[in-house]
Write a protein that binds this DNA or RNA. Structure first.
Lengths: 337, 337
DNA sequence: CTGAAAGCGCTAACAT
DNA sequence: ATGTTAGCGCTTTCAG
């Protein structure tokens, strides 16, 4: 069979023999126990490097009930996952933190998951914990996973509970500041294109917009769902252009949607920012790719990923990290407002 | 400890007891052996679903020497991986094929891999096989991995050997056709911006360009390395504009590089395609995002991913797939030529 | 500080 | 067709 490849399978037994000690001692060295004499330590280390020994993960995991693997679960389809630079930053952050540990990352892009493979995988004991990003109201399988292993959420979980761990950015505040900037810029008819309203990030950014509009006593204009995609943003902008009340500014809840909106505006001969100002959110790479470059809200996604990994690692190490971390956003002024 | 979460750890033993059979029979059912009586089958299946049994992966893997996991190894940094839509298509394709199997995917973006974690992971017996995409000359750790588990390459491997399995697209032919199209369009001073020349895809596309130039007896103009990134493409185009021999067309070996090149051209007031025609490669989503939309070479990346997964799965199942699959490209005419 | 012994949960001959 | 018996390679008490 093709799988019968020569496995470089040096066992702990052989290392023990080569070092003249017992399996237990080798195990202690491998796992960094202090209770080993300098001589034994030295002998074992030499044997390990000479034989090129790598412990078998399955055996280790079976005996210790630990896998040193964590799952990143993204309830989206692959298109959305790879199309949105936000995820790239998150994964990079997680990866950066993990690469300094001995944990590995297993990726599950799980929107189209017929047999609930993800849940089975977790229930089979294949990972020690999970990070969940892009959580929707409808993603109930996450609850099952959370009852099996520790979970850290990227963004406030859909049904927040006291014992949930999550790392979020201050979406309400970011959206509020962005809308206020539009208003202080002299705009009085401010519409918004929201993210999906079954996601906390979508809900919170809408909230921030409304807070600002209300505080200034302005009318709430078109509120359109743009689905966090460029195509959705374009559709939403088309609907806005067709409505009676044309806005003089639009707070768009993601840069990707703003790109779609911008394309529609350009095609319709509407000048940005002269006729309509556009405010984005994310400060993703697309912000500087579009014309004009987007004024937007910077969110620290890389740090968010890093922090999520740190929280989960702390949890797995038996430490007690803070349940909630909220990272600050920052307004980035470019040319679309 | 935080890891002491209640594991839904139903064991095969409990299932056997509940079904009134032995462990072996349960194992047979779980592994789809035919040698089980209808009554036993039925009893076991009921016990499994009542107890909500999921086999422990580590135990299974330890006993069977199979993990039902495969690694996707990408020797690039995360930025490049997520920035290039090519990878998104590849992963989607692999994922699509795998989701119809009981294999899971472990992702390794391994350019910045100080302790050679990827190799250790493979040597620890954590995966049954690997898919390697974006293979560079310098990536020697791949050879070590290939000596441990079956590997399928995306694209012709750096040092091709008879027994290598890979799925490639016809890069030489695609580049040839693209360059010929430029020439038949009346262009006579055709330059090229290449991909990295330590990668077969970069080498082969340059070859196709040269074949066409030679066949038509035209001069070979600037050959610039653009590194398969937008920034690299921009730099390369700047160098081309500064050279004495200004081309009237450029074959750019990837759409992402073409985007960078286009931006430089626009900034320099050079009209596309009037002054200089631009031909891309990939037909990635960016091809239709830029202005003007790119005339380019379509490569079937999703199918490439699917096919790689199929080949690896066949290999792991002890079948004998073809070693080499070459997928055809297709010219897509838009407005940049 | 170290070794012996007992599993971890499962598969895979080998009997029956 | 089914059960019994050995392990798979490692960790982890428990003695000493």
């Amino acid at each position: 069979m093709a799988t019968d490849v020569i496995r470089a399978s040096v066992t702990i037994e052989e290392v023990a023999a080569a070092a003249g000690v017992s399996r237990s001692t080798v195990s202690r060295v491998v796992n960094g126990s202090t209770a080993v004499s300098p001589e034994a330590l030295e002998a074992v280390q030499r044997a390990i490097s000479e034989l090129n020994y790598v412990p078998n993960r399955a055996a280790r995991s079976l005996a210790s009930h630990k896998t040193h693997a964590i799952a990143l679960i993204v309830p989206e389809d692959t298109t959305r996952f790879f199309g949105d630079p936000f995820f790239a930053a998150i994964v990079s952050g997680i990866n950066a933190r993990l690469s300094k540990s001995d944990y590995v990352l297993n990726l599950f892009i799980a929107s189209d998951d017929p047999g609930d493979k993800t849940t089975s995988y977790v229930r089979s004991g294949a990972v020690d914990g999970a990070i969940v990003v892009s959580h929707h109201t409808s993603d109930t399988f996450i609850d099952r996973i959370a009852s099996i292993v520790p979970v850290v959420y990227g963004g406030r979980p859909v049904r927040e509970r006291d014992r949930d761990y999550y790392v979020d950015i201050d979406n309400v505040r970011g959206a509020f500041d962005a809308t206020v900037y539009l208003i202080e810029n002299g705009r009085r008819r401010v519409a918004t294109i929201t993210g999906p309203l079954d996601m906390p990030a979508g809900i919170d950014r809408l909230q921030g917009y409304r807070d600002a509009i209300t505080a200034w006593g302005l009318p709430e204009l078109a509120v359109e769902d743009g689905d966090f995609t460029a195509a959705g943003g374009a559709d939403a902008m088309r609907r806005i252009l067709q409505s009676d009340e044309r806005p003089d500014a639009v707070f768009v809840a993601s840069d990707l949607m703003a790109r779609g909106a911008l394309a529609v505006l350009t095609a319709a001969g509407v000048r940005v920012p002269d006729d309509i100002a556009i405010m984005g959110f994310d400060d993703s790479p697309v912000a500087t790719t579009v014309v004009p470059p987007l004024t937007t809200v910077r969110q620290p996604s890389f740090q968010q990923g890093e922090r999520m990994a740190t929280v989960l690692l702390d949890l797995l190490a038996g430490r007690h990290p803070r349940h909630v971390t909220i990272l600050e956003t920052e307004l980035v002024i470019r040319e679309s407002v």
